[in-house]
C-alpha cells in the first residue's frame, strides 16, 4: 500500500515538475524542475527494479543535463520572455520620445 502511494506521489510530483518546467518563464527554474523530474524518475527506476537505468538517469539526467542546460542559459538569456520585454521597452521608449 505504502509502495503504491509512494509511486503515486512520485508520479504526481514528476508530472507537476514537468508542467512547472513547461509553464515557468524563468528558464533556470524550468531547468531545475527538469532536474527534479530526472531525480524522481531515477527513484522510479529503482522502484521498477532497474538500478542500471537509475544510475544512468542520476548521472546523466540529474547532473550533466542540468549542467549543460545551465551553461546554455548562461550563454543566452535566463528569461523566456526577455525578448518580449525588450521589444516592449523599445516601444515604450519610442512612445516616450514622441
Amino acid at each position: 500500500m505504502i509502495y503504491l502511494i509512494l509511486t503515486f506521489i512520485l508520479l504526481l510530483l514528476m508530472i507537476g515538475a514537468a508542467i512547472y518546467a513547461i509553464w515557468q518563464k524563468d528558464l533556470l527554474y524550468a531547468v531545475i524542475a527538469s532536474g527534479i523530474i530526472s531525480l524522481l524518475l531515477s527513484i522510479m527506476f529503482v522502484l521498477l527494479q532497474a538500478p542500471d537505468v537509475a544510475l544512468t538517469e542520476a548521472a546523466i539526467g540529474v547532473a550533466l543535463t542540468t549542467i549543460i542546460f545551465i551553461i546554455a542559459i548562461r550563454n543566452t538569456v535566463r528569461f523566456e520572455d526577455e525578448h518580449d520585454k525588450k521589444i516592449k521597452k523599445e516601444k515604450q521608449l519610442k512612445s516616450a520620445e514622441q
Binding site: 514537468a18 513547461i22 524550468a30 527538469s34 532497474a50 543535463t65 523566456e80
Partner: peptide, 26 residues
C-alpha cells in the same frame, strides 16, 4: 513554447517519458 531552450527542455522531458514507459513495460 517559443524559447529555444524551452523546446530542447521539452524534448528532453519527452525522452524521459518514453524512458519511463519503456522501463515499465519491462
Amino acid at each position: 513554447k517559443k524559447s529555444l531552450i524551452k523546446i530542447v527542455l521539452g524534448l528532453s522531458i519527452m525522452d524521459s517519458g518514453v524512458h519511463l514507459l519503456m522501463i515499465s513495460i519491462g
